[in-house]
Structure formats: structure tokens, C-alpha cells
């Protein structure tokens, strides 16, 4: 049901390859994103979730660094914490800019649109804040801002949906997105999607050969439930460990079938009333 991208985009599509094996959890991407996009604050809370007090993506968090502590080994590494195995996984999460984007499909105003770079962006002056995109996103990325100027800076765009734009304004000027620009280890790489996919394959082989056999790519496969993502990842454990769905599917894939079921139910409703009304007449 999602409209066909491949034809329209050709090879102009850009994306992120986030290589979590070299993320050091500095959160520079979170900061750069907030600064560049003037994303309002989303509360100060101590969560106790390792070094992560950002919690997850939403209207006012467009990059989120996850911190996972595990009593498991990382490759051949000797963690040096006594008799305990230990590894620390860090990963910078972001909107996946899906090939088949549910948020875009269900948006009733056309506020969410596909850009010339193949990314998915909200036009906040069109958005009426219906919130349909929020439960539609299979990754829990997009959110709706509070109405009104309750939070600092939210006044202008209060009540509307918001998420990562892959720095639409910077792309137009030939610049890479703020998070990729700032990432000190190149864990976040930006570029032509096909090229990034090739590079990711090479990197995966390298990491596996070095002993971290649990490494895998996530979102790189155009055959997956969302047609592959524009922002994909090299992960060191199962996706759900990082809060990502293991097998995301764009909800509109089943929409034709849903409409058929609705149609049958509607006709049945009509027939039901007709039967109840006319049955008495003939008696």
C-alpha cells in the first residue's frame, strides 16, 4: 500500500549507517541535534538506566543514545572486572526514514512527505496534531508535542507531530546532518544509501572476523517489512535489546485486507437492518 519509492528516487537516496560497535556513548549527536534543530527540552529526569537519561525517541528527542550493560563477553575481550563477564553496548537511535513509512501513509493532511533525498519529513505548518502517525510508527519514533507553550520553545509548533528530518535544511545546502557531522568516532555515517550498505557489509565482516560474532546489520535489507530503512545499524546483539522491534512491518501492508473486511462488515450491517425491518412486514 505504501507508494513505490524505488522508481521515484533512483540513486539519489541518502541515509545514515550507525555503526554501534564504535559508539562511545558521548551523546554529542543528541546535543548537536537539539542545537541545530532547536528541539525543546524534554524534561530532566534521573532514570537509573545506566547512563541513559534520555529514555527514548519522541517529539522532542530525535537522537537517542542507548546504554546496555550486560554480563556477557565482547569478542575475546577481558573485561577486567573480577570474575564477572561484562560488556557495555551503546547505540545512537534515530528515525529510520523507512522505505515504506507508516507515518507517512496514515497522515490525513499530507503534512508528512517524502523529500527529494528519500527522507520522511513533517511539515509542521500543515500538521493538525491528529496524532495518527504516533501509533502507526513500528519503531516508536515520532511523537506529538504538547499543545501550547507549556514547554520552552514548543509554542510555535505546539500540538503537532515532530521527529528527525535528517537535517532537511542542511541537506539542501550540501551539508551532512548535524549528528553525523559531530560524531567523533564516525559511528554515525551519512551518505548515499547504496554506498553505505556496501560499506556496512564490509564492516560487518571485519567485526565478525575480529571475534564479535553476535554482530548483525539491522534495517539494511530492502526485503524486510518496511522495505529497508534509510537509517540502518550495525548492532552487537538482538534488536530488542536496544529497544528496536525484531521484525517491524509497515501497518499499511495489511490495509487492503482491512478495507475488504470493513467492506464486508458494512454490507452485512446494511443487510442485517434490512432483514430485521422487513421480516416483520411480511409476517
Amino acid at each position: 500500500m505504501a507508494f513505490d519509492l524505488d522508481e521515484r528516487l533512483g540513486d539519489g537516496r541518502v541515509g545514515f549507517f550507525t555503526d554501534t560497535s564504535i559508539c562511545i556513548g558521548c551523546k554529542a549527536c543528541e546535543v548537536a541535534c537539539k542545537e541545530w534543530n532547536q528541539v525543546p527540552d524534554d524534561g530532566m529526569e534521573f532514570t537509573g538506566m545506566s547512563y541513559d537519561n534520555t529514555v527514548g525517541l519522541g517529539a522532542d528527542t530525535w537522537r537517542h543514545v542507548a546504554f546496555v550493560e550486560q554480563r556477557r563477553p565482547l569478542g575475546h575481550q577481558e573485561p577486567g572486572v573480577g570474575e564477572m563477564d561484562f560488556r557495555w553496548l551503546m547505540a545512537s537511535d534515530v528515525c529510520k526514514h523507512c522505505t515504506h513509512a507508516a507515518c507517512l501513509d496514515v497522515c490525513p493532511t499530507g503534512s508528512l512527505f517524502r523529500t527529494e533525498f528519500g527522507t520522511v519529513v513533517v511539515q509542521e505548518d500543515i500538521c493538525n496534531g491528529c496524532g495518527y502517525c504516533v501509533p502507526a510508527c513500528p519503531f516508536g519514533v515520532i511523537g506529538k508535542r504538547e499543545n501550547g507553550p507549556k514547554k520552552s520553545g514548543a509554542g510555535e509548533s505546539g500540538g503537532t507531530a515532530a521527529k528527525c528530518t535528517m537535517c532537511y535544511d542542511r541537506l539542501g545546502a550540501g551539508e551532512e546532518p548535524a549528528c553525523a557531522k559531530t560524531c567523533p568516532t564516525d559511528s554515525i555515517q551519512f551518505g548515499n544509501l547504496d554506498e553505505l550498505r556496501e560499506r556496512a557489509e564490509r564492516r560487518l565482516e571485519q567485526v565478525r572476523a575480529a571475534g564479535t560474532t553476535s554482530a548483525r546489520l539491522y534495517g539494511h535489507d530492502p526485503g524486510d517489512g518496511v522495505g529497508g530503512t534509510g537509517a540502518f545499524f550495525l548492532l552487537l546483539d538482538e534488536p530488542e535489546v536496544y529497544g528496536l522491534p525484531p521484525d517491524p512491518v509497515v501497518t499499511t501492508r495489511d490495509l487492503p485486507s482491512m478495507w475488504r473486511h470493513v467492506g464486508v462488515a458494512a454490507v452485512a450491517l446494511l443487510a442485517g437492518f434490512a432483514a430485521t425491518a422487513w421480516r416483520g412486514r411480511t409476517r
Binding site: S21, I22, P73, L74, G75, H76, Q77, E78, R87, T185, D186, Q206, V207, A210, G211, T212, L236
Partner: peptide, 12 residues
């Protein structure tokens, strides 16, 4: 920048 985590050392 070819750092490969977990490649160094030997585990007990």
C-alpha cells in the same frame, strides 16, 4: 578508524 571492539586480549 578501523577500531574493532573485542578484538584484543584473550578471555579466561
Amino acid at each position: 578508524r578501523e577500531a574493532t571492539p573485542g578484538s584484543a586480549g584473550r578471555r579466561r
